[in-house]
């Protein structure tokens, strides 16, 4: 199945490059870590066979679009495609310069979850095979079976694939994800059940680990500012020292800046080397934006960005 898709993808990409329809292609290649895929940016036909598709292609490749010149084809899962459109809406890239190749995605296996469930590191796992709604994980200690929901990325569990129409080409057939909205909302619900003081304490504790590597910001396709507020010095909004206070303000402001651009793709949480559960924030922000303004990022290339539009009457109940 995957092999078939891969061949189809390679064929299409070869075609695009040969005909000169695009100058470059952003896709996935085999990574050097076990199970990993890695972003692959090619312009030469000879490299086409390095492209791969599998359930581990978690990177949201749209983060590379603003930096890659010329006409670009990009391999996109449905969530990534929303980010691409979000970039178009925010005038970071012209729509006509991007050729979006949709790949059918039934969800991405979150290796972090696999490691947690098995107590093993990924290089101690021999094989991960996914059939139907079961995922079997084999290691020296034997094989264990999990439901797909247990190992899929949170962002996939919240995915409502099917509503999106902006692909220029789709490889194979788009299929719904084994989504489980209740499961993904669980983390948010648990948070809401706490008192404000408990919530603050929770985040204080989480952000005391932050090392301010800015991987969350750098991996984020919609954190596209040339100059981030954290680097401003006159006035200085936060200290460069990674104290929890400054770490928390950094992330809170980042979240408010990407509101209406963030598609809850989950890349920031996956990138964080100290496991700060940023998805609990991005997920809630998507909800807030939708509740208040009936807005979802990246759904309509012609819709203005959230912060560049308004309705004469909205959110007045929050205003004195």
């Amino acid at each position: 199945m995957t092999k078939e898709l891969e061949n189809k993808l390679r064929e299409e990409v070869r075609n695009l490059l040969e005909k000169g329809k695009v100058d470059r292609v952003i896709g996935y290649g085999a990574g050097s870590l076990r199970f990993a895929a890695t972003p692959l940016i090619i312009s030469d036909k000879a490299d086409v066979d390095r492209l791969i598709i599998n359930p581990f292609i978690h990177n949201n490749l749209s983060v590379f679009l603003p930096d890659v010149s010329g006409k670009v084809a990009i391999v996109a899962k449905e969530c990534d495609a929303r980010s691409i459109i979000s970039l178009v809406q925010n005038k970071q890239i012209p729509r006509e310069n991007v050729y979006i190749i949709g790949v059918p995605c039934s969800g991405i296996i979150d290796l972090g979850k696999v490691e947690k469930l098995t107590g093993l590191d990924r290089d101690e796992i021999d094989d991960i095979s996914w059939q139907g709604d079961k995922v079997t994980i084999a290691s020296a200690g034997g094989a264990k079976e999990f439901t797909a929901q247990e190992v899929l990325a949170d962002s996939c569990l919240g995915c409502d694939a099917g509503g999106f129409r902006e692909f220029d080409l789709v490889i194979g057939e788009m299929k719904p994800v084994a989504a489980d909205k209740e499961l993904i909302r669980k983390r948010i619900k648990d948070m809401e059940a706490m008192s404000p003081a408990e919530r603050w304490e929770f985040w204080k504790n989480e952000f005391s680990r932050c090392i301010r590597c800015y991987a969350c910001r750098q991996i984020c396709p919609v954190c596209f500012c040339d100059r981030c507020f954290v680097e401003e010095t006159e006035p200085q909004w936060i200290s460069p020292l990674p104290r929890w206070q400054d770490n928390l303000i950094f992330q809170a402001v980042r979240m408010m800046h990407v509101a209406g651009r963030c598609t809850d793709c989950g890349e920031c949480e996956r990138a964080c080397p100290v496991n700060i559960p940023l998805g609990i924030l991005t997920g809630k922000m998507e909800d807030i934006v939708e509740e208040l303004f009936e807005y979802r990022a990246g759904m309509d290339k012609d819709a203005p960005p959230l912060m560049a539009a308004y309705q004469p009457e909205e959110a007045e109940d929050l205003i004195r």
Binding site: A197, A252, L281, Y310, I319, R320
Partner: peptide, 27 residues
């Protein structure tokens, strides 16, 4: 109008993070 969007989000989001909503007022 933009301030209204921005501040409505800030109020809701920061409340979610644990800031009492009374601390952020818009008028």
């Amino acid at each position: 109008y933009r301030a209204r969007r921005r501040m409505a989000i800030a109020k809701k989001f920061l409340e979610y993070m644990g800031v009492e909503p009374e601390r952020i007022q818009v008028g």
